Amino acid sequence: MERILIVEDDEKIARVLQLELEFADYDVAIAYTGKEALQKFGEQDFDLILLDVMLPELNGLEVLRRIRIKDKAIKVIMLTARDAVTDKVSGLDSGANDYVTKPFEIEELLARIRVHLKAIQPQVVPVAHPLIYRNIRVDTNTREVYRDGTLINLTPKEYELLVYLLKNKNQALEREQIISKVWEYDYQGDTNVVDVYIRHLRKKLDKSKPSLISSVRGYGYMIKD
């Protein structure tokens, strides 16, 4: 659960923001002065700060300046009733990530919060395991195929056909089925196109007999152990 610090001296506004953010499943803390904001920032970890500009004790720009000395990455959205361009520029120049002018629609503020929090989420890259069969290795990340460690140049369709056969190893695959999956449409023409591509693959991949790709007479092809 992401944690948000609301820094707002108007208790009614702070309470409304707290209720809306908690309803959106955020963990929320409130500071009513600039000094209290710095104290809570130093004591707890937050993912984002909603920071009012006009604050007692220390104004929002000074709070932001001190926060940025310690943390360059935390997301900060400035909140203010002032809408002058110079005020917005001052906030952004001080290190704010965004600027929202009061009065604002809560839906817009929530949308901006989601955007900034999404930006700090680690991007999960799915791990693609290589496909290995005998002396053939297929790197599905780079779409590269190696035979005995030597790169083999395949056309896009040759590559997709090989991957489909490898992923369905030990299954007899009908020509129409191969066309449907590899060419990704209902092919109405001659299924000999599969035979042509299999012949190309065999020429590029096979160093000796028997072939890596077995023929299933009267049906199609397969790769089998």
Rank of each mutant, 00 (worst) to 15 (best):
R3Q: 09
L5V: 06
E8I: 03
E8K: 00
D10H: 08
A14L: 00
V16N: 06
L17V: 02
Q18T: 10
L21N: 06
F23N: 12
Y26I: 06
D27W: 10
V28N: 05
A29L: 08
T33K: 06
K35F: 00
A37Q: 00
G42F: 00
G42M: 08
E43H: 12
L48V: 07
I49M: 05
I49T: 00
L51I: 06
L51Y: 01
D52M: 07
L61Y: 07
I67S: 06
I69F: 08
D71R: 02
D71H: 09
A73H: 09
L79M: 09
R82G: 08
T86H: 08
D93P: 05
A96F: 01
N97Q: 03
D98N: 03
Y99D: 00
V100P: 01
P103S: 00
I106T: 09
R112C: 01
K118L: 13
K118C: 13
P122K: 13
V124Y: 12
V125L: 13
I132R: 15
I132Y: 12
R134W: 07
V138R: 03
T140P: 07
N141L: 12
R143H: 15
E144A: 14
E144M: 13
Y146K: 13
R147L: 14
T150D: 14
P156F: 02
L161M: 13
V163R: 08
N168H: 11
A172H: 02
R175Y: 02
I178L: 04
V182E: 01
W183R: 04
D186S: 13
G189E: 12
K204T: 05
K207L: 11
P210C: 06
I223T: 03
